[in-house]
């Protein structure tokens, strides 16, 4: 398998606090990888460095063989790295249709066209509608995003990332804060994502992790604690110990 995303000796410190401690990590094409760890383990900080929101103190990030450590958020995005946010980052005044159309238009480098009318490209619109339908957002695609139910907004958050047709997709707690009743829908969507995309799932919910992941990394105090298959992780006494203070999460 080819490696699509890689970090080498990645470090990030805020003042005296080390949030990412010498992380060397590989992600293979089409992977289903979960990144877990107790609260404050530095999972989101790690993802923020991968997507370029934060720049690392030292170390290298490599995407599809290219060193992207100093690339901007935008350049990473156009090179096949997409992400969702733990806290929704949406355009509240847009409709889901407009949102996805915007993402597709930018992907196709047509976002600076001022002489066209938005929506004139039927291929873009068709793709938007298909995507929204496949994520179960067809019925609300003409409503204002800010007025949607939270679970729907989480789905749209994923849809935006998928619209970019990424080779690597970072999902930062996709089900966080979603009511139990809507949770299955999000799990279904995550399950049904294309096998070409390498997925990294940051999650607290162990049900979701073990249902979805083929491999797991455990992050503790900013450092990679242990890596392995779900079975290995579930049976690893050290992981149990790390999670003991939290709650009995690993009863699978």
């Amino acid at each position: 398998m080819t490696v699509v995303l890689e970090t080498r000796n990645l470090c990030k410190s805020f003042g005296g606090i080390t949030a990412t401690d010498n992380v060397t990590f590989k992600l293979e094409a089409g992977a289903r990888h979960a990144l877990i760890g107790p609260n404050g383990a530095g999972k989101t900080t790690f993802v923020n460095q991968l997507s370029g929101v934060l720049s690392p103190t030292s170390g290298t990030i490599i995407l599809n063989g290219q060193d992207i450590t100093n690339w901007s958020v935008r350049r990473r995005a156009t090179s096949g790295l997409a992400r969702t946010f733990q806290i929704n980052q949406l355009f509240a005044d847009f409709t889901p249709l407009q949102t996805i159309l915007l993402a597709i238009t930018e992907r196709e480098n047509a976002g600076s066209q001022w002489w066209r009318t938005s929506g004139a490209r039927s291929d873009f619109v068709d793709e938007s509608v298909t995507l929204l339908t496949s994520l179960g957002l067809a019925d609300v695609m003409q409503q204002r995003v800010g007025s949607l139910a939270y679970g729907r907004q989480r789905l749209l958050e994923i849809a935006i990332a998928v619209a970019a047709k990424p080779s690597v997709l970072l999902l930062d707690e996709p089900a966080a804060g979603v009511p139990e009743s809507d949770r299955d829908q999000i799990l279904d969507v995550v399950d049904s994502l294309s096998a070409d995309v390498a997925l990294v799932l940051i999650e607290h919910d162990m049900d979701l992790v073990f249902r979805f992941a083929k491999s797991i990394s455990v992050l503790v105090n900013g450092a990679l604690f242990v890596e392995g298959t779900p079975a290995e992780i579930a049976n690893d006494p050290r992981v149990r110990q790390v999670y003991l203070g939290e709650e009995e999460l690993l009863h699978v």
Partner: peptide, 28 residues
């Protein structure tokens, strides 16, 4: 015309959420 175009839509997106605009690959 500008405001009804993809360009205009992208401006409103930047106004609404510049971080998200960047992460979908927009040259903000």
């Amino acid at each position: 015309q500008i405001t009804k175009s993809p360009f205009g839509l992208s401006l409103q997106a930047i106004k609404g959420n510049p971080l998200r605009a960047r992460t979908i690959g927009m040259p903000v």
